[in-house]
């Protein structure tokens, strides 16, 4: 199920990128795409009833952990996504300063 949610989000993100004409909305679409991707990564390691991969005193003898690696990957991916988003927003501000609009169609420059 989780995969389906992830793929729907991915598709939504791509749809947004294709259709939106507003710089901010494009950035949001990118974010949705990334969230979908991150969800997908998590879903790869997850299975029904798996435990969080942390050894504690209460961990059973033969633990049924989920794959910890995707979670580590996701952390990195999220950080990178945040960086990109921040940069995108900064650029959006620059674009607004330069053209006075955030709509791609109104900028008149090709």
């Amino acid at each position: 199920m989780l995969q389906f949610a992830a793929i729907i989000l991915l598709m939504l993100g791509l749809y947004g990128l294709l259709t939106q004409r507003n710089v901010i909305k494009i950035i949001i679409s990118l974010n949705i795409l990334e969230i979908g991707l991150n969800l997908f990564i998590i879903s790869v390691g997850y299975f029904e009833g798996g435990l969080a991969p942390i050894f504690t005193s209460e961990t059973p003898a033969n633990p049924n952990f989920v794959d910890p690696l995707p979670q580590a990957l996701v952390l990195t991916a999220i950080v990178i996504g945040v960086g990109t988003t921040a940069l995108g927003l900064a650029l959006a501000r620059k674009i607004y300063q330069k053209y006075g609009t955030l709509n791609l169609d109104e900028m008149g420059e090709n």
């Binding site: 990128l17 710089v23 795409l33 990334e34 790869v44 990109t84 940069l87 995108g88 330069k98 420059e109």
Partner: peptide, 28 residues
Amino acid sequence: KPLQTFNYLVAGTVGSSLYLLGLIILYN
């Protein structure tokens, strides 16, 4: 040319996201 840079950013991010997607499928 912030608009052009923005295009680059969008294309680059989508590209690397696809790379990551493919990579995760392979990892799986």
